[in-house]
């Protein structure tokens, strides 16, 4: 029972949660198939609206239908990666755990909080339908665009995908820190920011918007960095005159802020607790 933290330990924990995910999925064949079908249908139906519009009108916002399809594939891949790596037990939607007083369970484990958060959300099997749809759309759109990119382009794609995923998770943790102070009021803040604002907005070619609306969407509420901005760069049409590494710099800044805010919130939580006397304390 040593205290050493190593990559082996991290991969050991990831393997543990992967096995638990597979056990859960294989427990019931009907449930597994329904779960996979549900993931596929939900993903395709959420993307089809924008694609059909682009197809009908021969493109939207200066992007051709195939370019729109690439962008939709990118956003689905980002959502899929989030689901695979941070999907389980409200790891991405951490405000739910904080708001429900469930962070105490994590404090009882002899592991650093960050390691628990990295490992616990790993759903490589039940979380992958959206990822597969996203990757499929990206490959299909590349055929339609008649592109045959080199290794550097694929590396850039991986980098932009990683930045978008980390941007989404960083945004969740930044907002979720509010739940340390006002647990009931902000219990659902993460799902509001991620699922109801940034997620849906990331499916649109934002170049249709005037600059006054566009700039906030690549800074204050960075839905534009989740698919539109990186897709434009990867398709050779860098928007807004920003550098190609802007998503990386933004994500690093966002994470620095999120870590600072989350740590402050955690210290508040441990110092004051979230008890029945607190205005907006735990709902239980």
């Amino acid at each position: 029972m040593g205290d050493k933290l190593s990559l082996r330990r991290v991969f050991g924990l990831l393997a543990l949660y992967a096995r638990m995910d597979l056990d859960w999925l294989l427990r019931d064949a009907k449930l597994s198939l329904l779960d996979a079908a549900n993931g596929l249908i939900a993903c395709l139906s959420s993307l089809s609206g924008v694609f059909l519009l682009a197809w009908r009108f021969g493109g939207v916002g200066g992007l051709s239908p195939w370019q729109i399809l690439f962008m939709l594939g990118f956003t689905a891949t980002v959502a899929g990666l989030c689901m695979v790596f941070f999907g389980s037990n409200n790891v991405a939607h951490i405000s739910r755990r904080i708001g429900r007083g469930q962070l105490d369970h994590m404090l009882l484990q002899p592991l650093p909080l960050w390691l628990q958060l990295i490992a616990e959300g790993f759903l490589p099997f039940s979380g992958c339908p959206r990822l597969l749809v996203g990757l499929g759309l990206v490959l299909w759109s590349l055929r339609g665009l008649e592109l045959s990119p080199g290794w550097f382009w694929w590396l850039s794609l991986a980098g932009y995908l990683a930045c978008a995923v980390l941007c989404l998770v960083g945004l969740s943790y930044l907002w979720s820190a509010l739940a340390f102070r006002w647990p009931v009021a902000f219990e659902e803040i993460s799902s509001v920011v991620i699922d109801e604002i940034c997620g849906p907005l990331s499916q649109y070619p934002l170049s249709i918007l005037p600059p006054a609306l566009l700039w906030p969407l690549v800074s204050i509420l960075p839905a534009g960095l989740l698919a539109w901005f990186p897709s434009c760069i990867l398709l050779g049409r860098p928007p807004l005159g920003l550098p190609e590494l802007y998503p990386l710099f933004f994500t690093l800044g966002l994470w620095a802020l999120a870590i600072f805010t989350f740590r402050k919130g955690l210290l508040y939580y441990v110092h004051y607790g979230s008890n029945r006397y607190t205005q907006g304390g735990h709902r239980n």
């Binding site: 040593g2 924990l13 543990l16 638990m20 056990d23 002899p110 592991l111």
Partner: peptide
Amino acid sequence: ELWSDHPVSASFRWKREVWG
């Protein structure tokens, strides 16, 4: 602390891994 959607034995194995 038990994992609701898993058998008790799976929670025990989880404990073994997480606590080392």
